[in-house]
Nucleic acid binder design. Structure first.
Lengths: 150, 150
DNA sequence: GGGAACTAGTACGATGATCGAACCAGGTTA
DNA sequence: TAACCTGGTTCGATCATCGTACTAGTTCCC
């Protein structure tokens, strides 16, 4: 670590990525809290965000969020207790269970989606359509060599 | 939260930013560990990374890393105990103290810088010079509206 | 088929990270 | 100088995270 940023525009790319990442996360989290969904933590939200429409296995959630299975399990436990998600059996594998959004989770979803759209619109307006497209494209491309999950 | 990624290329930008951010962080952390700097945690590294060449105030570190002053203080305590940083008085304000890299910290610095350079080179090779430049430029621009610190 | 090896998930216990509240000392302002 | 603000610390509680160990179901291969 320690790349003490000689000039403002020469921040290492890690920091450069971190800044908008946290900004997005904070915006979503704050908006959900304002809408009454204030009974979960940021770590729990990070799990929930990764649940697919047809449910997602715990192991996949853990891998995607880069935490251990135990941590993921712990967070899902809490989300289950507060009614955001539920575990259902995986028909294709009796060992596995699919984590799905429950009532409270599906209620929160459109709120989150709206904020994502809002923030993305702001950023797009700031950058302009062309540069916005380039940013998305570059990040999507980077995924190929940086995403251990995919 | 919960934007259950309909198609791979339509991940919300938060996730798209998270993936390479964590990839970079993990690479640096792993390389430092291999080089013998294995006696600090990721959270401590996140602090250290933000220390400027002339020292940085605790409050600034906390704000930049988006943790509370208490957390930052706690992490700096540990880094001080293991010889990575030290606190020196701030000549311009007797209340404040500047957190600076100590011997072990300055020893780790070139290792970290080398990995950052290596990873950036890989990414640049993958994207091509032009797209790489666009990515950096777009992220730097985004900072203007997403960086509460700056 | 049947055992070996592997995978999904859970349980337990320890440590780390993080926060809120309260506080102190040095600065700033009127 | 009194009131207020700001940088930092201390204390205690809670949350997040991991390593180790375990159970149950699956896959592989002779």
């Amino acid at each position: 670590m320690a790349d003490p940023a000689p000039k403002p525009d020469e921040l290492n790319l890690g920091l450069l990525l971190f800044i908008p990442y946290r900004a997005m996360e904070n915006r979503i989290f704050a908006a959900l809290a304002r809408a009454g969904f204030d009974d979960f933590t940021l770590a729990q939200a990070r799990m929930m965000q990764r649940i697919g429409p047809d449910g997602t296995r715990l192991t996949d959630l853990a891998e995607s969020a880069q935490v251990t299975k135990q941590t993921a399990s712990h967070l899902v436990d809490q989300l289950e207790r507060t009614g955001y998600v539920r575990r259902t059996p995986d028909p294709t594998d009796a060992r596995a269970r699919l984590v799905r959004l429950a009532d409270r989770g599906t209620a929160a979803q459109p709120v989150a989606a709206a904020v994502v759209a809002e923030v993305e619109a702001e950023w797009r307006a700031h950058l302009g359509d062309r540069r916005w497209g380039q940013l998305r494209a570059a990040l999507t491309d980077l995924r190929e060599i940086t995403d251990p999950y995919r």
